[in-house]
Amino acid sequence: MWKNIFDWLNERLGLNDLQKSLLERPEPKGNWWNTLGSASLFLFILQGLTGIFLTVYYTPSPDHAYDSVNYIMNDVAFGWLIRGIHHWGATLMVIVVFVHMLRVFVTASYKYPRELTWLIGVGLLIATLGMGFTGYLLPWNQRAFWATTVGTQIAGTVPFVGEFILKALRGGPDLSALTLQRFFAGHIWMLPAVLVGLIGVHLFLIIRHGESHWPKKED
């Protein structure tokens, strides 16, 4: 029966083709440096899943944010695990995405016809850093509060539009409930939406172009 169900779905969805193009793409030459993109994708999915789970208990309000994070860490079963994965996964994701970028740079994989893949990758890096910046405020502890105070102040030093950027980031001149709420919205809705969209195009381009070959001496 399972075979019938699989065949029915396969005929309509082309599962075998999907598997071939997604999971069994030929590698030009087995090289661990070429796995960093997949590692980034895996970390993104992991962050997405653990993040969804965290919203079950987290409250983005100045009255409750800190207490709700404490509750997750101390009282909910495996809350420490879910938040721990999200916390360390975030750091790891920034590192992996950055090393992925370095690899592409060093192997000159951003050249024709992959310029667009590179540009979208730049967008992905910025969005990833944005996730780090917005997520850092959410625990609403001293470190989060002052890190965001400093971070938004740095954004405020931009000539001419600096003050506007600072107010737009904070939702007013000061760090407040509005800041926490908009960082939360950015962290769980806007930036993930941007990331998912960009990742989709990024992956499409990679499957379309195949992987670049590892540079040889003559290159």
Partner: peptide, 15 residues
């Protein structure tokens, strides 16, 4: 190892 604790995490207040 991640999925099973996640279920426990979700249903914890019901226990």
């Amino acid at each position: 190892t991640v999925g099973l604790p996640a279920v426990g995490y979700l249903i914890d207040p019901a226990l």
